[in-house]
């Protein structure tokens, strides 16, 4: 099976620090997967490795059967936690630029999500608040019709009042017949009802990968409760 992101015995070190240790799992198309874990557990690094923007120290990461590298961006729509934008652009210009660079960027879909996110298309990005930058990040990431959508903490910076509606809106723009959404979040409770499966990390090691239903059946626990039980 080639339509899958596969990690095989992946270890990642930065200078002398081991961030991920011997991680192996695969995520097929058609899933919404949450990567959960405490601070410094390696969630963001794991996502960057899947996107090909980071390279494993040992082991291998493949996307659709090909070794992940920077050019994996063709099939992976990735958004980083800190938000990456060219501040020289307005919201509309940023969308047009993405459309010019990615063949799978759907400008009409981006317009639709932009309206849902209540963003002013003429606003300069450098003038946007942190929350609105987060919304723009969601627009730019979800408007791509790439098979894999990777979002690092997409909910951080969003107002708690609008978070629920934005999360629901986000999911409605993912086509599970042809796409997989993988996201990290500290707000496990808020995404639990939306995700099919989860990858739990602790200290850079894979603690568990399972379907949410499987966890409910085997342990009778929600992810949040299981994490409290396991991590503490």
């Amino acid at each position: 099976m080639s339509d899958v992101i596969r990690m095989t015995n992946v270890t990642k070190k930065y200078i002398n620090q081991t961030v991920l240790k011997d991680i192996s799992f695969a995520v097929p198309i058609g899933k919404i997967v949450g990567i959960v874990g405490g601070n410094g557990s390696g969630k963001s690094t794991l996502l960057r490795l899947m996107s090909g923007l980071s390279l494993p120290t040992s082991g291998s990461v493949t996307v659709n059967g090909e070794t992940a590298n920077r050019r994996t961006g063709k099939v992976v729509s990735y958004s980083s936690e800190l938000g990456s934008f060219y501040p020289i652009f307005t919201v509309k210009e940023a969308m047009r630029f993405q459309a010019s660079q990615f063949a799978d960027f759907n400008l009409a879909k981006a317009d639709e999500i932009m309206k849902l996110m209540q963003l002013d298309p003429h606003m300069k990005i450098k003038a946007l608040s942190k929350g609105h930058r987060g919304r723009l990040q969601i627009v730019l990431t979800l408007a791509r019709e790439a098979p894999y959508i990777l979002m690092d903490e997409p909910l951080s910076g969003l107002d708690p009042m609008v978070r629920e509606s934005i999360v629901k809106g986000m999911i409605s723009y993912v086509d599970l017949n042809s796409q997989t959404l993988i996201m990290t979040s500290h707000e496990v409770a808020e995404i639990e009802t939306l995700i099919d499966g989860f990858v739990a990390l602790k200290g850079g090691s894979l603690l568990r990968m399972a379907d949410v239903d499987e966890l409910h059946e085997s342990e009778g626990l929600r992810i949040t409760d299981w994490m409290k039980k396991t991590y503490i």
Binding site: L53, S80, Q101
Partner: peptide, 13 residues
């Protein structure tokens, strides 16, 4: 300053 944005561009380096 925003390396992931530049590196994830699908054009060759």
């Amino acid at each position: 300053n925003h390396l992931p944005l530049w590196l994830s561009n699908p054009q060759p380096a």
